[in-house]
Amino acid sequence: MIIKYMKISNYNFEIIIIDDGSPDGTLQVAEQLQKIFGTEKIVLRPRQKKLGLGTAYMHGLKEAVGNFVILMDADLSHHPKYIPQFIKKQQNENYDIVTGTRYAGNGGVSGWDFQRKLISCSANFLTQFLLRPNVSDLTGSFRLYKKPVLEKLIQNCTSKGYVFQMEMIVRARQNNFKIGEIPIAFIDRLYGESKLGASEILQFAKGLLYLFITT
């Protein structure tokens, strides 16, 4: 699907797939795709075990040859149809970062019940209120970065999990990078289990406090 949308819009691209030894056969699927589409378009960078989001991005970034990098989840909760919109937005205003937002315009989610929405909106409100980041969605991970900007941010960010996304965008603001937004529909995990429990909320609270004190 990525290839379909990139071909339509005629952009040069490569797809870098990072897999941290998931037991569901992600790597085997990726290898098959590589055989079909070629090693130029599909680059595989598997790792032995789970080592965290930040180092995964770092790992993929080393291989990237382009000037711009788009980060997205590979479970299709992020639709590739938005990629051309991200690129257009970047070109129009020369943004350093373009981030997908579920909280603005036509953005939204699919597959969330009232409780999940309530938790998400409360967390977002609290973050907006305390940090005033001028970005409507801080925990989303569908983003386009200028490559040097991403390199710089990754080095400065130490958080784990989705707090990492939050730290990236808050630090980007701190560094006066120019940030644009594209409303996206987030289709929650068609495959696999999406988790939001007490430990995720605690992790978020700690992350928020950390950013509140340090930025």
């Binding site: 909280y103 699919s110 529909a185």
Partner: peptide
Amino acid sequence: TILWRVYNFNDCHKEAFEL
């Protein structure tokens, strides 16, 4: 504010269907 935002949070049924 929070309740208002939850109320206005789009349910992307159409997008999910398309996907």
